[in-house]
Amino acid sequence: MNYQPNVQETFSLIKELVSIPSPSGNTTKVIAFVENFLKEYGLELKRNRKGGLIASIKGTNDKEHRMLTAHVDTLGAMVKEIKSNGRLKLTMIGGFRWNSVEGEYCEIETASGKVYSGTILMHQTSVHVYKNAGEAPRNDDNIEVRIDEKVSNADQVRELGIEVGDFVSFDPRVQLTESGYIKSRHLDDKASVAILLNIIKHIQSEKITLPYTTHFLISNNEEIGYGGNSNITPETVEYLAVDMGALGDGQSSDEYTVSICVKDSSGPYHYGLRKHLVDLAKQNNIEYKVDIYPFYGSDASAAIRSGNDIIHGLIGPGIESSHAFERTHESSIENTERLIYHYLLSEMVKY
């Protein structure tokens, strides 16, 4: 059955998703957005205790299940310390480098829900004052947040309601270009979440029957290592993580194809499922790349480490400059969406 994704709808969903702050540990708003989106399409929906969302579609075979996952949590930070000068020290949420957010606008959300804007800066930013502005290390000691409020000491900051432990999110700066790119922070992994949502919408709207009962886990702790390691039904045979393909020197992935990961820091992915995905791509004229990510882990990695007896795989759109100034092209979104669709309608791997 041929499927032509509506990439502009997927792009629109990505734009909405990345605009909702959701650093790991503070994902309630974005999970609620996904839940409200899916309610219209008549799926079985439930929240797990970790705050993730599971959407299920009953298939012809209800004895063997599939699970697909994409994560909606993102990189971010927490207030580590309120400095005597009214600035904030940060602690990272997720694996990135301070230089990738230096100069970025941010939001600080207090425990009461009040939000303040700010900018992430080096303490030694002004070249007119600090001779070593260019050479000073970008680290926990030197990076700080300048709050957009009239504060000059810690007491004034606390009077705003800001405290240690408050979440800090980064401005996504999302843009869609006429040349077919979307560039934004947090395409990892909200691009994949939008792809799954668009596929679910199509399946339910067209009343397509899946061959196997299929669960879609929108996980919310992947960036800190344990988003997709639970709530896997005993009937689940195949588990496919949908997450970004990492680009750079020595990588075969690009911004225009779907990336099929064969190995990451957790080891090889299931050989049979990997070959099945490649065969599906070839049969359906889907442009793909096979790749290895040396410094990477996924929800599928976490699921395997938790002792689940499953066949695991990983695919996703190619994302340039991961965990920093991310970008991908509409053709990568389209190829990824098509491969997932054909996978959902295919027979399981014989293990």
Rank of each mutant, 00 (worst) to 15 (best):
Y351N: 00
V290N: 03
D254I: 01
S84I: 01
K83A: 09
Q156F: 00
L247K: 10
V30A: 03
Y288F: 08
K201E: 11
L13E: 04
T27G: 10
G225M: 06
C261Y: 08
L160F: 07
N6F: 10
A302V: 08
I14H: 01
R305T: 11
L344W: 03
D279R: 15
A133P: 05
V34M: 02
K50A: 02
Y271R: 15
K46R: 14
K131H: 15
P211N: 00
S192V: 00
K201Y: 00
E64V: 13
F33N: 05
Y239F: 15
D73R: 09
L273P: 04
V168F: 04
I182E: 09
P234E: 05
Y256P: 11
I147S: 01
E163T: 11
I319S: 03
H329W: 07
V157R: 08
K289R: 15
K89D: 13
N220Y: 01
V164A: 12
I218E: 02
L176T: 12
L314P: 01
L45P: 03
E222S: 06
H215W: 03
D73F: 05
E326V: 06
Y256S: 14
F11L: 15
G118K: 07
V168N: 13
L43K: 06
P21R: 11
Y269C: 10
K58I: 12
T10F: 02
P268S: 13
E330A: 14
R158H: 02
A77T: 08
K190C: 00
R327C: 09
R338H: 09
R146T: 10
G59S: 02
Q175K: 13
N99Q: 15
Y296T: 04
S306Q: 07
A32S: 07
D243S: 07
D254Y: 06
S230L: 06
Q204E: 15
A302Y: 01
Y269V: 02
D254V: 03
F216T: 03
L277T: 11
G316T: 01
G316D: 07
K39F: 04
I93M: 10
G248R: 10
Y239D: 13
Y343V: 07
Q4Y: 12
E44F: 09
A246L: 15
S253P: 07
S253H: 05
V278P: 13
K190N: 10
H65V: 01
I182V: 05
S56C: 03
E107Q: 14
N6T: 08
G76Q: 11
G113W: 00
G161W: 11
S169V: 05
L217I: 02
A300F: 12
G118L: 01
L160V: 05
Q124V: 13
D264E: 08
A154Q: 10
V349E: 12
S169K: 11
E287N: 14
E223F: 02
A55E: 07
S266A: 15
S321Q: 15
E334Y: 07
K15P: 03
P21V: 05
D189P: 07
N132F: 10
E222H: 04
L38H: 06
D309G: 00
A303W: 11
K58L: 15
L210S: 05
T213G: 05
H329V: 04
V290F: 03
T214S: 09
R274F: 15
M67L: 14
H71C: 04
M92G: 09
E35Q: 06
V145C: 06
